[in-house]
Design a protein around this nucleic acid. Sequence first.
RNA 1: GCGCACGUAGCUCAAUGGAUAGAGCGUCGGCCUCCGAAGCCGAAGGUUGCUGGUUCGAGUCCAGCCGUGCGUACCA
Length: 664
Amino acid sequence: MNLLAAIREQFARALVLLGVEPGELSNYTSLVLTSQDAKFGDYQANCAMPLGKRLGKPPREVAAQLVAALELGAICERPEIAGPGFINLRVKDDWLASQVAGFLSDPERQGVPQTASPRTYVIDYSSPNVAKPMHVGHIRSTVIGDALCRILKFAGHQVISDNHLGDWGTQFGMILYGLKHFADAKALNNQTLEELTRLYKLVNSLVEYHDTRKEKLPALEARLAEAERTAARLSAVSPPSDAKEAKQAAKKVRQQEAAVVELRSELAELRAKVAAVEADATLGKLAAEHAGIGQQVLQETARLHSGDATNIELWRKYLPACLTEMEAMYARLGVRFDHTLGESYYQDRLRGVVKDLCEKKLARESDGAICVFLEGHDVPMIVQKQDGAFLYGTTDLATIQYRMNHWRPDAILYVVDHRQSLHFEQLFAVARLWGYGGVELQHIAFGTVLGDDGKPFKTRSGASVGLASLLDEAVERAYAIVSQNDDARPEAMLSEVERRQVAERIGIGAIKYADLAHNRTSDYVFSYDKMLAMTGNTAAYMQYSYARVKSIFTKVIADSGLPVADTRPDATILLGTPQERALALALVQFAEALDRVTTDYRPNHLTAYLFDLATHYSTFFEHCPVLRAETEALRASRLALCNLTARTLRQGLELLGIEVVERM
RNA sequence: GCGCACGUAGCUCAAUGGAUAGAGCGUCGGCCUCCGAAGCCGAAGGUUGCUGGUUCGAGUCCAGCCGUGCGUACCA
């Protein structure tokens, strides 16, 4: 059971007796919380203060009435009223003990209830572009989305995971252009994917080159000139006599000068990039020969969309190589999807979407494009370009329509970079106007992965880091750590094969855990050293904690000679020390942690819980001898606590998509 | 310009409108003839960017300012 939920139910009953309307109950029951500080008990109810205000009675009096109306005797000690009207609750030791004992015969769920109101979720995550190698930016979407799928499913919801691949957009137009102009037939045959990647990168850099020369550089030069003029003007003005105004004016000058410096360095960077292309004999020649490449790429894309036979055939022929590569990556990450319906899947529905939007007067022509104008937005959502091509917004609308028709979900979650929040705001607004008001549409936004310098994580040369090499590096470092530790033992414990397996799990786990442990909405700094640290809130530490618990059972097996060293499901749990009690309470609160994750889709609540559980276990382990316990009954009880801790750690990590190791 | 995020210990980050804002790393001090010390026990470290407001109660909500990042009509 969910202890917090059970206590809240009791409070709901009591609140009704005090005259609170059923519709307002949750305003008050939501103020029943786990205590931040153990000295205030295990749970606290803070509802007497607002209720007292509402009823015009002293809060402490209301608290006393609530306490009198509560029927929590089976679960809690007599509630205490403290301060202005806090009601502090302490869970009874014997109730805790019997709950925990019950978990022993429930290895699948450890007392975590299935939700009473199951919903159907579609979770849209990962969604890489084909041919464009997956990079560090894809990891968060993939890892967070996968964890949310696992947790919602475990909670008893129906979950449909869908990988909405970018397999139909401009990036494939680049491949098409590359195939037609730069392909090496032999390489294309033998090393298809490598060649496609090469083509993508080549075309992309040429497009970038021309775009920079024609658009970005002039724009930046204009901005710089403007900034320089403003700076000159500001510094020419004589300072105002008023001290405060003078200070502000001086500050403006400083800011403007700083802006000029920044723009100059930006300009120098762009010029250097252009110069680098021109200095490269091959690249420079290609750039000169393909001056209109940007437009041409868009035309290739448009031709694909309009059903051009050649482009369709090339697309069919070369898409599979891209997909195979992705599947290998997902296999390594332990991520799977129920569906992989990419953008291409919806291409024949796009025309109909636009037509329908026009007929319903939601969309209209503007500057040659078909747009949906939305109240409160300066820019419209464009659903069809001047050249007739559709955009990802169009595809996203078609996708919503498809998902609603086929799966009838209660919620669709999009696990996508926060930079796309404007797009989703518009998409959801249009979807609601279009008739999909009943479904919960949520952008599960997350922050950028940064390097040590606080800027988006890149290699030293400025390229984005490929996902494969990222994983390799983490696993390599994990291997070094595992080997070093094992070598430091009097006698090595792990075989080479085992070391490799452990390193893979620790390395991949480290990356996933670091991602999940941070509040998803904020950016976070990527650091191998931090994520692979054996101390602190890391996957390695959690895995260590698990292995350490398991080692007790290894010892039991060795000593007793019994093949299975599990605890008896009928063991009695004894909670004679504060450490045992704290551990038992932590075990019971697993359900609450999962609940917190599902209410606002934040996996970091689960990592925080697991770290807390591991810490409670360490304290328990330090203070309470297990195998050398004073009595046989105490030994059985403590072994049971160890067993349940191991199970909860394993289960919790599994819900995050992280594998444990039995020893390391 | 407009819009959206964010600003918390030296660093990396938590915190559901609740009591004295918490962890880890780092620093300092204790604890291994004893189940994995990758640990435990303890100390130091904060005007939660600033100023107001709402509230019995604000890191959290509102307004204004300062700073950072991102986005802003035909890429995704």
